[in-house]
Structures are given as C-alpha cells and as structure tokens.
Simulated assay, not measured.
Amino acid sequence: MIRQLSVFFSVILVTSLSAKDVQPVGVGGNWKLVEAFSDEFDGKAINEKKWDHRLKPWGERSWTPDNVWQKDGNLHIRARYEEHARKGKEYFYKMGILRSRQKTTYGYFEARIKGCDRFPGLCPAFWLYSYGVDRNPDYPHVTYSEIDIVEMQQNNYLKELKGKAPVNHIDCNLHTRVLDENGVEKWIRPQQRPDLCAHHYTAPWDPRDDFHLYAAEVTPDKITWYIDGKEVASAENVYWHLPMAVTLTMEARPPLIKWANGGRVPVPENVTPEGFPTEMVVDYVRVWERIDSFDSPISSSKN
C-alpha cells in the first residue's frame, strides 16, 4: 500500500512539473508559466479562486454557472435552448462563461479547444478584455481593450465572398474604445479599421471535428496570432495596453441574434431548439510571461 501511494504521488509530481515546464507551441524564447491564468482543468470542479463562472447576464448573453463544468480533464462550456425573461424582455438561450479573476496585459496566451456542433448560430471564443476603471497612464486615451485570440464559427457576412463565412473561417479580431480630441469615447472595431482590427485564417479543417491550438502573443509593440503553432496574423499594438481578463465563452450569433442599436438582440422568428444543447470543450489554458526580451511583468490586479 505504501509503495502504491509513493507511485501515485510521484505521478502527480511529474505531471505538475511537466505542466510548468512546457513551453508555448510555435514560438521560441524563454518563458515562465503564470499560474494565475493557467489551468489543465483536471480537477472535479472549477477553481473558483482562479476563475469566475457566475457572471451576471450581458444583454442577450444569459450566462448561467450550470453551463460551465469540468469532466475527464476538460472544461465544458454549454449553450442550451431555454425561453426566459429578464427585465421584461424575452430571451431564448442560456450559455456559459469562464473569466479569470485577475487581469493581465502582455504575454503568450494559448488554449486547446474543440468547437461546438451547432453551426451557424453560436461562437465559441477565447479572448482577453478589460472592464471596470483600469487605465494605463501611458495610454490615457484608451478606455477599453479587447483581443479576440479566436472567435470560431461566426458565419458573419464577408464582402469579399458576397456571402456568409464558412465554418472553417477563423476570426482573430481586435476591439477598443478611445477618447477623441474632444474627449468623446469612440469605438474602433474591424468594421471601422479593418486594416488594424480585422484578421482571419482559413483553416484546412473544421473546428467542430477536433481540438486545435489557438494562441496569441501580446507585447507592447505587437500582437501576433498562432493556430496550431503557425503564425496566422499580426498587428501593431496601438491600443491594447489595459489590464485584461482571460476569458472563454459561448455566445449567440446570426441568425439567432442580430446587431441593433449598438448591441445584440434576439431574432424570435429564427429561434429554434434544433442543435441544442451543444458545447465547446477546452483541454487547457496556459499563459506565459516572456522573460528573455522585454520587461513584461504579469499584472495581478483583481476585479
């Protein structure tokens, strides 16, 4: 029995050490794994000291904690059909979100994800975003930073195709809000600045079929996206300098919702239970700090 316990604890130790020692896929350099934003999802329950999955709904995004769980070494985030009302408005789907309790700005962010079965209508995503009153004094005009490491299965309309994007169109976009010369807050998004904010990769595979690696390196000067260790896009880092939360979500997309009045609203005539429930699956999330080039301490700011 003692020998069995010894072997058991040795396996745990080796697994833990190997997870800490592993390096980002596809990029060189010397990296340090940041535990506050990394998770192998091997436990029986969400690590609530590290992650928040009980966020209040945002508009049509009806987050509920029962749509996020861990099983067999994976994180599962579900979307399900369920008619419900909030503040006198009718909604039709409930989904899940996992958001880090701490925030960070620069580093290498990697997750191994399998998309959901339902297409079109849902978007599994891995992203970083700022919220609250956090500001960077070196960039006083920036009020919001969002880096979409991956948004898959969006099925958005593409001018170049004169139609909807296919399932293998992988989006890697940027969003920000800045103050103009008059102090008025303005959005800068892929629609306004496609040269800076709109990026995509046409995959030779279907993201619903298997796990793939989605990653981005964020430095003070540049944002670079990687898929399966291959660089697929890059952009100058003009506005993305605020502390951001590491986030995984399932969200509704057209035809189940539409953009209206600066937000998203359900489209009741397109509501359907077909294809629900469905879920995205995440093998792990790992975040590293580069320690061999620039001084980029990981922020530990909390909510």
Rank of each mutant, 00 (worst) to 15 (best):
V238E: 04
D52E: 10
V238W: 01
H76D: 12
F119H: 01
R189L: 14
Q102C: 10
F92R: 06
E35N: 11
M95H: 02
L33I: 06
F119Q: 00
R118M: 13
A125G: 10
R99L: 09
F109T: 04
L128G: 10
H200F: 11
G96E: 02
I223Y: 15
G28R: 02
V22S: 14
Y284C: 09
G59C: 06
S38F: 12
P140T: 04
R78F: 10
Q153W: 00
T143D: 09
G121L: 01
A45M: 14
R118C: 12
K89I: 10
H53K: 13
T272E: 01
R253L: 14
E82S: 10
V238L: 12
G121S: 05
G73V: 11
T105K: 07
V22R: 15
V142L: 07
Q4K: 14
S100H: 09
Y157M: 06
V178G: 05
P166D: 11
K222H: 08
R112H: 10
W127R: 04
F119C: 02
E82F: 07
W69F: 13
P273V: 12
H84E: 06
R3M: 13
E181F: 08
Q70N: 15
D195F: 07
R177P: 00
S300Y: 15
F211E: 05
G29Q: 09
G88C: 02
K222V: 03
H169D: 08
S301L: 15
N270Q: 05
P207K: 01
S38E: 05
D117M: 07
G96V: 00
S145E: 02
N67G: 12
R264K: 13
H200K: 04
S6N: 15
D66W: 15
L55V: 12
W63S: 00
E146P: 04
I188Q: 01
M280D: 03
M95S: 02
H199C: 07
C172R: 12
V267I: 04
Q70V: 11
